[in-house]
């Protein structure tokens, strides 16, 4: 019994939150890695682009709520994803046309494009703050829990409760759905194969008749879908605040590099690696050991490796370790 309690405890406080957070990171990391692999630059506007898409979703959600439109027990925000994705794609294509394409045609070095993306980051942040302001906004509505701790305790008779928030279930479900469709597209369709070919060997792809403009267009479309959905899911689960989204760029970068940059599947797994590391290292295991160990061995301290203040630092340290020992990432991406 104690053993099951301990497992439920871990599930409740580490596994489920890590799966949720990991999914949110994974979507962002695939976005980073696609842009890096196909458009060939590190996009420092990643976090703010995700923020832009989410902002549109938040605004439409507020509008829907004022009209009294709801999505039953599901959050209204899910309804707003399609228009938000459209707005996001439109914004990305706009930026690409007036900013990035110039440097791409000129074949500027990736560093220059990265620097340009810093400019885009500033502009995007300005637009977001001018439109919606820097404040914390909650836009979640609908049913909050799928499984409440008390219900679980009654059901099973255990001491430990298991809570599943609907945002957690939605996040994991939507991520699996979106990522499966995306991998199907990349691996099983002609256009997807041509995108991977373009990412692998641009010159040869051109010689094979692949239209670079189309590849770039589709990359931004996928990027827009990933960025918006990733951003909305994060916002539903926590809350929407522009500064936090900017900061999320950092663990997302870490996930993309840990997974091997340029490799979408690596980025997907990288998101979970980072999320699990952050949560497992900063979780206090005192109660967990209290269940497992006999009473006289019970620990006095919190049994916490690092305080939760260092959450971000953990993911960055993993990145540093990966860069030191396996610079092309755990799942092998482009060589540095």
């Amino acid at each position: 019994m104690d053993f099951i309690n301990a497992i439920v405890l871990l599930l409740n406080y580490t596994v489920i939150p890590a799966l949720t957070y990991g999914s949110q990171l994974a979507l962002g990391a695939i976005f980073v890695t696609l842009v890096y692999g196909i458009l060939r630059f590190a996009n420092f506007a990643t976090g703010d682009m995700m923020s832009f898409g989410t902002m549109v979703a938040v605004l439409i959600t507020f509008y829907f709520q004022s009209l009294g439109i709801s999505f039953g027990f599901l959050p209204t925000a899910l309804l707003t994803i399609p228009p938000a994705v459209l707005a996001m794609i439109f914004y990305m294509l706009f930026i690409d046309k007036f900013v990035f394409s110039y440097y791409r045609v000129k074949k500027s070095p990736p560093v220059q494009l990265a620097m340009v993306s810093v400019g885009v980051m500033f502009v995007t942040q300005a637009i977001i703050r001018i439109i919606i302001g820097p404040f914390d906004r909650r836009f979640f509505d609908g049913e909050k829990f799928i499984l409440k701790a008390n219900e679980f305790k009654e059901m099973t008779g255990l001491n430990e409760g298991l809570t599943i928030k609907s945002t957690q279930a939605i996040t994991i479900f939507v991520t699996v759905l979106v990522v499966s469709i995306m991998f199907w597209f990349l691996n099983r369709t002609k256009t997807g194969t041509s995108m991977r070919a373009y990412s692998d060997n641009e010159d040869l792809a051109l010689l094979s008749g692949i239209d670079p403009k189309k590849v770039v267009l589709i990359t931004w479309i996928i990027a827009g879908i990933l960025a918006t959905i990733g951003g909305v899911l994060y916002g539903l689960d926590k809350s929407y605040r522009p500064f936090v989204y900017f900061n999320n760029m950092l663990p997302i970068f870490a996930a993309a590099i840990v997974g091997g940059i340029g490799n979408p599947f690596g980025a997907f797994l990288g998101g979970y690696v980072i999320a699990f590391a952050e949560i497992l290292v900063t979780y206090a295991y005192k109660k967990f050991f209290a269940y497992l160990l006999p009473e006289f061995m019970e620990p006095d301290s919190l049994m916490q490796l690092l305080s939760t203040d260092y959450k971000f630092a953990v993911s960055f340290s993993i990145l540093v370790i990966v860069l030191l020992f396996r610079p092309s990432g755990i799942f092998k991406g482009k060589t540095l």
Binding site: F41, A42, A114, F253, P327
Partner: peptide, 20 residues
Amino acid sequence: IALGLRADYLAIATLLIAEI
């Protein structure tokens, strides 16, 4: 740790280390 990485990786790595 970080020098010897390609330029844009160096940018990301130094940024993250600064955060640490």
